[in-house]
């Protein structure tokens, strides 16, 4: 099987330079599809309801990932001795007595909350659409700023109008009509770069990934979600989602553009600066909503990739 991200891909990847306009990461067909959705983007009971529901899982995935990878006792950067005395075991507490385990877990949670409170993450949301994810991210107390970029003027107008309704977003959230490759990495670096439900809509996903990871600060994160190219995903996202249950707007997906989790993992394996830390499948159950699964190789999935070296 051809990998969508390999050089031998059936649709040959063009080099970064040849994307002359810089706005060609998305085809005109895709763009006009999203423009049509603009007006109902924020109606939580409208055509994008399933996306609003998925956003809940994205937020859980990000918060859980960031929290579970916090370093609770950083001995290299210990500022004072007093802190050293409060030792909080970072190990698995499953073997301890229940009462002790509980109190250790509570200490860990308190420490994590403290660390989070001190953070002001700078985030870039690539393919922000109407801003469902960008807004949620900007409301978190440990996020300092969010910049959302997209290639559709119409959906960006929706995003801006909706953000203006909530005063808390005024100073934290901004939107730009910009392609990721246009951002200068010497001027803008981010703690979190996200690409949700986006790679399956672009023509050259490897190029987009390459442009995106330039912008990640050392120690920062890439969060992405997309869809495996398999029968299950065709059945759930296109056959059922778009045609039978009609919970996804028709024409949202193109099956050949889906990317397998394995392909992304292999792509990152070639880059020693990045480590795939989390990979989680998810599935939509009509009566319940989105739910994480144990299998990231089937259907939709989330990934968290950390920039480990400087």
């Amino acid at each position: 099987m051809f990998s969508r991200l390999s050089v031998k891909s059936i649709r040959p990847l063009v080099s970064f330079r040849s994307l002359s306009s810089g706005l060609t990461s998305i085809s005109p067909v895709e763009q006009s599809h999203f423009n049509q959705l603009a007006s109902s983007w924020w109606d939580v009971n409208g055509p994008q309801r399933i996306l609003h529901k998925m956003n809940l899982l994205r937020m859980d995935f990000i918060t859980n990932t960031i929290k579970s990878h916090l370093v609770l006792n950083d001995y290299n950067n210990m500022v004072n001795v007093a802190e050293e005395e409060i030792y909080i075991p970072g190990f698995d507490v499953g073997l301890l007595d229940d009462a002790i385990a509980d109190s250790v877990l509570q200490d860990q949670e308190t420490r994590r909350q403290e660390l989070l409170r001190g953070m002001r993450l700078k985030c870039l949301d690539i393919g922000c659409g109407g801003g469902i994810f960008s807004e949620s991210m900007a409301r978190l107390p440990y996020v300092g700023s969010v910049k959302g970029i997209d290639l559709s003027e119409e959906v960006l107008a929706v995003a801006k109008n909706h953000a203006a309704l909530d005063p808390i977003l005024e100073k934290k959230l901004s939107y730009d009509l910009q392609a990721v490759e246009q951002i200068d990495e010497s001027l803008e670096q981010y703690d979190v770069v996200s690409m949700f439900e986006m790679l399956e809509h672009v023509d050259y996903p490897a190029e987009v990934l390459k442009s995106a990871i330039r912008l990640v600060k050392p120690g920062g994160w890439v969060f992405l979600s997309t869809i495996n190219r398999d029968f299950i995903s065709w059945f759930t996202t296109i056959a059922m989602g778009e045609y039978v249950l009609k919970i996804v707007p028709k024409g949202t997906h193109t099956h050949s553009k889906y990317i397998n989790e394995k392909e992304i993992e292999e792509w990152f394996d070639k880059n020693p600066e990045f480590e795939v830390k989390e990979s989680k499948g998810c599935v939509y159950l009509p009566a319940y909503g989105w739910k994480f699964t144990e299998n990231e190789h089937v259907g939709n999935y989330f990934m968290a990739i950390k920039r480990v070296t400087k």
Binding site: H52, M59, E135, R139, D166
Partner: peptide
């Protein structure tokens, strides 16, 4: 709040 939702939204 933990998910960054608008707590007034019906969602």
């Amino acid at each position: 709040t933990e998910r960054g939702l608008d707590i007034g939204s019906t969602l």
